[in-house]
Write a protein that binds this DNA or RNA. Structure first.
Lengths: 298, 298
DNA sequence: CCGCCGCTGTGAGCCGAATTCACAGCGCTG
DNA sequence: CAGCGCTGTGAATTCGGCTCACAGCGGCGG
């Protein structure tokens, strides 16, 4: 695919011409003659088959086509300007990301290699803590939070929702996995105080109440480990179980999902001095979410 | 400022070389010889004073500098590719933005000329309604909502917080404006059932209770009009009053602000077919917020 | 109304830059 | 150790951008 793109000088000429609404003033800014600008624009218009300027008395007014195009051109030129200005300054940025341990171990860390590869200038510090880090107090630069959104004072973007589904080890009960809700009732249902079974049981139309007995784990990741070791059936968040399901460490039971009203949010503050790095991190996270589990197959 | 940027062909060569980790394969893709790629990279490295590639057996591996730089280059090239591919297709997009009437009249509409100017390919439909538009049902493509965030199923970004401050007409009471809290107690306090006076009175340390008498307006914009016509003192949201304060239609009383726990959010759904246009709208809104009231001075 | 002034359109010619070509050097592999 | 595949490098060539000079056009002041 050879370059269908006009030369950079042409784009700069076009951008300046739109800004000044005059070829001669644009030429002056770029230390060229008005003829050069005129040639550039003519080339561009012929290439696109569009008029980019119309004369209005003694001004050159960009057409709608021109105004639409100049937005992208400006963004691109800006990116390059900043990219090359900063190149070699090698500003190693360190970002502290506060995240729940279960999400860190089951979702974030398995994908982090791609981040380190893509952004070698950003050193991520994964800060695992029980509660919410106070971004405004500088406890972290950004965070991934689980909830329904609406935290005060911070910018937030929803990363992913979640679904609950029952999983267990493939060798659980010697491989005699439960196939019906009645058989499930005879299994050990592993419990997490923050993730009740009831919504799923309700969605499945089961006549089983919230289990009152069986092991309890307060951490989702540990709960899955327990299930993988054959201790019982776990009600797993899909994003956490994905890796184990693919590796065969866990298998899915039933085809019924219960939606989880909460979501994962990326939150940050807009007035952070290293906002560019935070933007990069956010874009990477959103991209990872979009890829789903496919990022793990590679 | 003449071009400090390398030619586009050089950037494309660099990008392809990073992708293929090989000059010859990059050359093949661009229908060039390996020598051209080599010259391009050498030029780039000399310009920057940095090594962008190191040999690793028979591969050319980008250095950290190279990997940092290629991100911006890729983004810029992508913008241009898409910009030029779509140029002239003239896809006129129509976006319906649901917004409260007060915000529309006092904040959005005064700035909209800049949007129309910048994005002539996007036709905005400003849909004013009392309640929340249901984005998932297609009632609107995006919305500006007032509240604390955390709406389900939609992506959201906080636009601006707000502050409450008392304002009145400069000729109110023949120009004898209240200078003390006691004098304020003797004024007519205009009321809005959704915006109580109490938080501000509390912040001011006043001994006045929530006013029980005086005109009531359910719409913030109408309330401000009433104040501007000398009907009394209004407790205004700063963003709404800004224009009137600058024009002298209203004047500010006291230097005490009460924070408003709610904020304005831009909300949208990520799976919208015209997500590019929504991104443009969001970026424009965020930019307008960043400019504050200065956009009105122009 | 006319002539000047400032602007853009256009073609010829020049100059610089990008590309190719050919060859050297280097590491890996059989 | 020879051959292969890759990159580095310099000289020659080719291509494209820039300038220059002139024409055309509209506005503005006399």
């Amino acid at each position: 695919m050879p370059t269908r793109l006009p030369p950079l000088a042409t784009l700069q000429a076009f951008e300046a011409a739109v800004r000044h609404q005059s070829y001669t003033r644009a030429a002056k800014e770029l230390a060229l003659t008005h003829g050069a600008i005129s040639h550039h624009i003519a080339m561009l218009e012929e290439r696109l088959g569009l008029r980019l300027f119309v004369r209005d008395r003694n001004r050159m007014v960009p057409t709608d086509h021109g105004r639409i195009l100049v937005i992208k051109v400006r963004q691109a030129l800006g990116l390059l300007e900043r990219g090359f200005a900063r190149a070699g300054q090698n500003e190693h940025v360190s970002l502290t990301l506060s995240v729940l341990s279960s999400l860190a171990s089951r979702w974030l860390v398995p994908r982090m290699a791609s981040f380190v590869e893509q952004y070698p200038d950003i050193d991520l510090c994964i800060d695992v803590r029980a509660g919410l880090a106070d971004l405004m107090a500088g406890e972290a630069d950004a965070a991934i939070r689980y909830g329904t959104g609406g935290w005060p004072d911070v910018q937030q973007v929803r990363l992913m929702g979640d679904e609950l589904l029952p999983v267990c080890a493939p060798h659980y009960r010697g491989g005699a996995l439960p196939k019906t809700l009645d058989e499930l009732a005879g299994c050990t249902l592993l419990r997490n105080p923050w993730v009740p079974w009831e919504p799923w049981l309700h969605a499945a139309g089961a006549d089983i109440r919230e289990p009152k007995r069986g092991p309890v784990f307060t951490d989702s990741a540990v709960l899955l480990d327990a299930a993988a070791h054959g201790l019982g059936v776990a009600l797993a968040r899909r994003v956490f179980a994905e890796g184990d399901l693919q590796s065969g460490r866990l298998v899915r039971l039933f085809d019924i999902f219960a939606p989880d009203p909460s979501s994962y949010f990326f939150v940050w503050r807009t007035d952070h001095p290293q906002i560019d790095a935070i933007d990069s991190l956010r874009e990477w996270l959103v991209e990872q979410v979009g890829r789903g589990a496919s990022a793990l197959r590679a």
